[in-house]
Design a protein around this nucleic acid. Structure first.
Length: 897
RNA sequence: GGGGGGUUAGCUCAGUUGGGAGAGCGUCAGGAUCGCACCCUGAAGGUCAGGGGUUCAAAUCCCCUACCCUCCA
């Protein structure tokens, strides 16, 4: 029940999400906005961000001013993933009406173009005129100090003044980080009626409950916060807005939760048909499971489609958690495994309208989903016995509660979620110490956090210090003239650096390639009027920056000085050879193995390369051979490498491989070897393939499930390796005296000969020991009722001694045997007592005593003991002494018993 | 990036204060059978992941490396 009805126009009563998208785009295009396609979920060049989590993320550099926006007015519907953080704990997803890991954010943006007035009026007009929301249900909030915004709401819209509420910094002030652009914001809310209220008397706008639903946030970026925390006015204030497509859909479709919109219902129905129980639309006992699964398949599908694979770290790990959580909740609904591929197929069907490109790669995504699902099921199967063992252990302690420690162990070490454990142990009457578990979990998190902040070294200079980005000239030149703009020593920005110091240098121009795209940063030297720095690594501390890290070799350098920057040509040469070789390798892999192969990471160094790619199984030697041959055939053509800048659409249409998509950027750099490989790439490359020379694949191995790794050498590194192999081979030939080949035959026959010899040696030894020990039996004597043998033999190692012992003890069914093995400079002692003498005559104490007499140690069990020491001055004396003592002891125990 | 667990026969895994490397399945041979499966007897098969250290003695304890599983960031 909802009063009053939020929508006023009949036409919009049943607005499906597709129409909402169209209406949104066409409205803003109508007011001169440029439509920008959704950027990748995986942010490019931003290590601080796990996923694109808001509509403004692709525009971050544009807001910071380090990059030009596609237009001063833009509109987008950006796909987003949130997987943690204060407002979106993964655990809450599925248990509320509105939390998602994957969602789409509709937004309009102004980069120094229009400001508050237009932003407010566009939003109002869109909501009330285009999608027909009734002004009666709308509320707005403004920042407590923002008089301007409140006045504008009153003057440019028809909202009732009593529906404008002022809120504080927590709700209505937005900032990107601790420094940088920020500003007040203004939110538009829909009053869903008292039925949605938490019922508390204090319930009003700002309350956490569902009654006042925030649907659109308008951010007025008008300040730049500097390091001191002071707000300085931005010269060109900007607008960033965000409205969740899922929320707006739920309002416009008159349903109670996002999960009942057309963005979810087909998935809910599919889950319902698989589990044979329909979704209860919020009233079913297990509805939460439907919601979790539907939500997670959306996020997982998109992430995999964008080239991510489940793994045990970083983004891949978040993806793994999505998939595993979905599978886990699938258990609650008794869904038959694997069920994720079928849901994925349904999702593509739903989303093919707005995202036609999703149709490509369907098989690959389905395969990855299925594999991860099966993998988790295996983990659970493996875990069941462990849980049983934990229960048994608890029972032994007389407790029917599994301890927090063992719950943590099951989860942390073996990946078995607590909920799953609970399901298994509840029927047995067990409960769980959840508090103990949470406590251990907290420690773990704290530890992770500490190690994280501990190693994070932040660049000590603000990103806004540079008014324009550093010009990279390294594609064409290896030398450049520049001026020192920033110097860093230790954790501080400094004016001057001198000999021996570790420093970082930023200059306005640089030919140094900064580490990125898998390619290592350049090395070289920076020379000033009075000093020189050797550059050891180069990276981008912020987008658009290039920082050179190294050590001052001679003299001093100061801010403002002119410098000459020179890249080490042989370093760069090795890097570009290996980089182009990587592209060829990638293309060859796809050709030989299939189009499911995608780059999953790469490392390009001057003297080797490493390439990770998606492929389900190990490569056969034949496949590796074919790939290597193909690449070398390509190299031999000597084809020219073409590098060009194109529009993204044009590049993709030309078949370019693009992974981990860029941002909205229209201009992309395309590296093409005609007929062989086309990739979007910012790295440095050879001009002609002949420069590569040759390529050797060194190894192929697995890095994670579904990901393989190839390591290879190209150019002079490959030649050097070939030379090394040749030298080794000739050394082996010389050693084996097998010149001219047939080394394998030679090894084989040698191996056979060795085996024969070993067998013969074994036979001879056992014969020898038979004879030898037969003689030794004569040395044995009877002491009371015990048969005793103490003897010394020459032997090579303990193994020989044991062989003799085995023979001897089979001849003496009851008794004591002590053998002293004389080896080079050492004595090994071995003692045996038959089972019946275990208590009465434990041989380990004798071995210990003898070893001590020989200046060594020993020990063991009563029936079998070993020890060692240095040889006695006289063997006969030593042995006789031992015999006498043992005899005496034997007689005494006889009397005693 | 930081933890936890693992790596022993072809496979699945035991191996308890450090003291003789094991089981089941599989393989092979023999027996039994018209034949097959079952069954009986026996055998082969191991750099205990690799390297270093401690020790008289290391699968076992310590350190390093590689790989696999898993958690946290």
């Amino acid at each position: 029940m909802r009063l009053p009805s939020p929508t006023s126009g009949e036409a919009s009563r049943l607005m499906d999400s597709l129409r909402i998208r169209d209406t949104f785009f066409s409205y803003f295009e109508g007011v001169a906005h440029r439509r920008v396609p959704s950027a990748s979920l995986i942010p490019s060049g931003d290590a601080t961000l796990l996923f694109t989590n808001a509509g403004m993320v692709p525009f971050k550099d544009a807001f910071l001013g380090s990059e030009a926006p596609p237009s001063s007015r833009c509109v987008s519907i950006q796909r987003c993933v949130r997987a943690g953080g204060k407002h979106n704990d993964l655990d809450r997803v599925g248990f509320t009406r509105r939390h998602h890991t994957f969602f789409e954010m509709m937004g309009n943006f102004s980069f120094g173009d229009y400001f508050k007035k237009e932003a407010i009026s566009f939003a109002w007009e869109f909501l009330t005129k285009r999608v027909g929301l009734s002004p009666e249900v709308l509320w707005v909030t403004v920042y407590t100090e923002d008089d301007e915004a409140e006045a504008l709401w009153k003057s440019v819209t028809s909202i009732h003044p009593s529906r404008i509420v002022r809120l504080g910094e927590k709700d209505n002030f937005w900032q990107m980080g601790n420094t940088g652009p920020c500003g007040p914001c203004s939110e538009i809310l829909v009053d869903q009626g008292p039925a949605f209220s938490c019922g508390r008397p204090t319930c009003a706008v700002g309350c956490d409950c569902d009654r006042y639903l925030e649907i659109w946030n308008l951010v007025f970026m008008q300040y730049d916060r500097n390091e001191a925390g002071i707000l300085l006015p931005l010269p060109r204030p900007s607008i960033d807005t965000g409205m969740g497509l899922e929320r707006l859909s739920s309002v416009l479709q008159g349903v109670e939760s996002n999960f009942e919109t057309d963005l979810f219902m087909p998935l809910m129905e599919k889950i319902g048909s698989l589990s044979r129980t329909p979704y209860g639309k919020g009233k079913g006992e297990k509805d939460f499971a439907y919601r979790v699964i539907a939500d997670h398949i959306r996020a997982s599908y998109f992430l995999i489609w964008e080239g991510l694979v489940p793994s045990n770290e970083g983004r891949g790990y978040v993806l793994r958690r999505f998939i595993r959580r979905a599978v886990q909740f699938g258990l609650d609904l008794a869904l038959p495994n694997p069920f994720l591929p079928a849901l994925g197929e349904k999702f593509v069907e739903m989303m093919r309208g707005p995202y036609p490109e999703l149709l490509g790669g369907r098989d690959r995504v389905a395969a990855i989903l299925a594999e991860e699902e099966e993998r988790f099921i295996r983990t659970l199967e493996y875990g069941l016995p462990l849980v049983r063992e934990a229960m048994a252990e608890s029972r032994r302690r007389g407790s029917m509660t599994l301890s927090g420690e063992s719950l943590f162990w099951l989860y942390d070490t073996h990946g078995i979620p607590v909920d799953v454990v609970l399901d298994w142990v509840r029927p047995e009457g067990f409960s769980l110490d959840l508090e103990g578990f949470e406590a251990r979990m907290g420690e773990q998190k704290e530890q992770g956090r500490r190690s994280w902040v501990g190693q994070k070294s932040s660049f000590p200079v603000s990103a806004s210090l540079l008014t324009r980005p550093v010009t990279f000239v390294g594609y064409d030149r290896l030398d450049a003239e520049g001026e020192i703009l920033v110097l860093v020593h230790g954790a501080n920005s400094v004016e001057k650096v001198s000999e021996g110091e570790e420093v970082e240098v930023v200059s306005g121009v640089s030919p140094f390639y900064p580490e990125g795209g898998g390619q290592v940063g350049d090395r070289g030297v920076i020379t000033g009027p009075t000093g020189e720095i050797s550059v050891e690594s180069v990276y981008r501390p912020y987008p658009g920056w290039i920082s050179h890290r190294g050590r001052v070799r001679t003299g001093t350098l100061s801010i403002g000085e002119p410098v000459r920057l020179s890249v080490d040509p042989s370093w760069r040469r090795g890097a570009r050879i290996h980089h182009t070789a990587t592209h060829l390798l990638h293309a060859a892999l796809r050709k030989v193995l299939g189009d499911h192969v995608r780059q999953a990471g790469s490392l390009v160094l001057p003297d080797r390369l490493r390439f990770d790619f998606t492929h389900g199984e190990p490569l056969t030697p034949l496949q590796i051979e074919r790939i290597e041959t193909l690449v070398n055939d390509w190299i031999a053509t000597g084809e020219a490498v073409r590098i060009s800048e194109k529009s993204r659409q044009e590049a993709l249409a030309g078949g370019a491989l693009a992974f981990f998509g860029e941002k909205y950027g229209d201009r992309v750099r395309v590296v093409e070897v005609p007929g062989m490989s086309v990739e979007l790439c910012g790295g440095t490359h050879v001009r002609e393939l002949s420069e590569i020379g040759l390529l050797y694949v060194l190894s192929e191995s697995g890095v994670a499930a579904g990901t393989r790794r190839i390591e290879a050498l190209a150019g002079s590194a490959a030649y050097g390796q070939g030379k090394k192999w040749r030298e080794e081979l000739s050394a082996i030939r010389g050693f084996l005296r097998a010149p001219g080949g047939r080394i394998l035959d030679r090894l084989e026959s040698d191996e056979k000969a060795r085996e024969t010899l070993e067998q013969e040696l074994r036979a001879t030894k056992s014969h020898l020991f038979e004879v030898e020990t037969a003689g030794m039996l004569g040395e044995s004597f009877q002491a009371g009722d015990i048969r005793i043998l103490v003897a010394a033999v020459d032997c090579r190692d303990g193994r020989d001694l044991r062989l003799r012992m085995d023979i001897l003890k089979s001849r003496i069914p009851s008794g004591i045997i002590i053998l002293a093995g004389r080896t080079e400079g050492q004595v090994l002692l071995l003692g045996w007592a038959s089972q019946d003498l275990e208590k009465r005559f434990p041989v380990n104490s004798w071995i210990r005593k003898m070893a001590a007499a020989l200046g060594g140690k020993g020990g063991g069990r009563p029936t079998w003991a070993e020890g060692g020491g240095v040889p006695p001055s006289s063997w006969p004396v030593f042995l006789d002494t031992v015999r006498a003592e043992i005899r005496e002891e034997a007689m005494r125990t006889l009397v005693g018993s």
